[in-house]
Each structure stands twice: as C-alpha cells, then as structure tokens.
Amino acid sequence: MTTAPPKPVDAKPPVPAAAPERIKAKQRPGDVIFSTSTIVAGGLILAILALVALFLIVQSIPAFVADPAEIKGSPSSFWAYVAPLVGGTIWAAFLALLMAVPVAIGIALFISHYAPRRLAAGLGYVVDLLAAVPSVVFGLWGITVLAPFVQPFYSTVVDIFGWIPILAGPVSGTGRTILTVAIVLAVMILPIITALSREVFLQTPRLHEEAALALGATRWEMIQMAVLPFGRPGIISASMLGLGRALGETMAVAMVLSVSGGFSFDLLKSTNPSTIAANIALNFPEAHGVGVNVLIASGLILFVITLIVNSIARYIINRRKAFSGAN
C-alpha cells in the first residue's frame, strides 16, 4: 500500500476543464488483469457475431455454386428454391404483426393508463407469462386446440367471403393454414410488443396528460393527444422487434403449418408456403450433402433479414433515447 491515496480514474475532477494534467490512478496487477478480462469478454461478443456470419457464409458457398438439380425438389436455381420460403416467412410475420400490434397497444394502454395502479404490475406479469411458454408448447397447442377450433370459422368465411381473392376456397379441412400460424405467432410476439410499448407509454410527461385532462378532454382524447404522439417511435420500434421475433420463429410454424411448395397469398387453403425457419427444422434431420449447405444458406438469408429489421428497430429506439432525456 502506498501512502498517497489513489485517485479513481473516472471520478469527475472538481476543477474546471482547464486543469493542467489529469491525475492517473495507480494501475495494480489486479486492476490490469480485471479490466483486461472484461475487455476480452466484450471483444468475445464482437468475435461471436463475426464468427456466426463467417461460418454461415463459408458453409453457404457450396449451395450458391451447386448444381440446382441436386437441391430438393430440383428447382431451376438456388434462388428459385429460396424465394417462396422468403415470401412465406415475410407473409406469415406480416399477418402476425397485423393482428398483434393493435392488441398489444390496447394491452399496454390498459396496463399503463386504465388498470388500477395496484393491479397494473400483476397484470403486466400475467402478459409476461405468455413469453415464458416454450415455442414447442405453442406448436402443440396450435395444432391440437387452435386449428380444430378455428376450422369451422374458416369454412363459414369461405362460404360467405369466398369471392375475395385471398379468402378463396377450397377451405383447409384441418385448419392448419397460414392464418392459424399467424394467430399463433401473434400470440407469441404479443408480450415483447406489449412490454416495450408499456414502458414508452409510462414515460409520457405527466404534465402533458394533466394539461389535456384540465382542458376537459376525456381519457381517450387525452391518450390520443398526449400519449400516442409521444409513444409513436416506441410503438414502431417495438413492432419491428416483434417482427424480428416472428420472422425467426421456428417450431410453432413447423408444427402447425401444412406445407406445400410454391408461394400464394391464400389464407384459408390447405396449400401454404413454408417459412425459412420451419423449412430448416423440418428438413435438417434428414438432409445430407449439398442439402445441408442449401439449408444453411437459407438460414443465412434469414439471419440477414432479421439483422436488418432489428437494426432499424434499435436505431429508432436509440435515436429517441438520445433526446428524450429519460436516461
């Protein structure tokens, strides 16, 4: 132990910026070892992401150059094989988002502005329980409970609205259509959208809300004028994160969807496009040779799509954080 007390590195110096020279803390071996190990751990995260990208690319190259005849179903090229899957992935995720976002905003508003204060935390926990259910259980539930439950509705809808192109028949006899999958996906992404929107709604400046109420606004008008404009970026980024989750969801889709090749927008028919993730899960155990590389290449495409979606979402969140003064 030296006699002079060491100064902490990041303690704010009391003198103004014109101070002569910053006094540095003494670096003990323990300090060096500890700080280095934390930097290494941080660097590992960079390395892992780089490795994920690298190894997926390396293992995908054989698929891009392979003879299309070797790919399952012998399509004209790798891209012809993967295009319907990309379409199915985006279509299913989009439908799920369409259903989940209004409900999630409703739940978030209910918890943040409608429910009694004392109940709110407990209700939030109940919604979080949905996030705790493993996806394979959702798949099991979707196929044994939800699909038989919605099938009669589907036949009714096809009977009445069959003239609308995407609702055209013949209706699926099992209910295992892309709409059912979208419902399951919507339930699965509800918790994440709800949790984020709720956080944003709670950050609405109290004075804005009170000003609106003082002017005689009803609760809905207050929400319309104060809460929703304030929370819009938060809702958008929460939805994008939910979209990212829905794009990558595997087991629920693999189990519930009854798949056929090709792509179509039909919601209620028994011919449905598969999704990238479900296609990998269903075909990987039996794949061999270049088939494995094809599946990894499709996984790479999924990785890129979710990476873009998530980055945009995070960019919106971070930009907002910078000027909200909340941090």
Partner: peptide
Amino acid sequence: VMTGIPSIV
C-alpha cells in the same frame, strides 16, 4: 442485435 438472432440461426 444479438438479442434478435433467430434461435434456428
């Protein structure tokens, strides 16, 4: 970004 990696990837 890593939070959003699909599990299958």
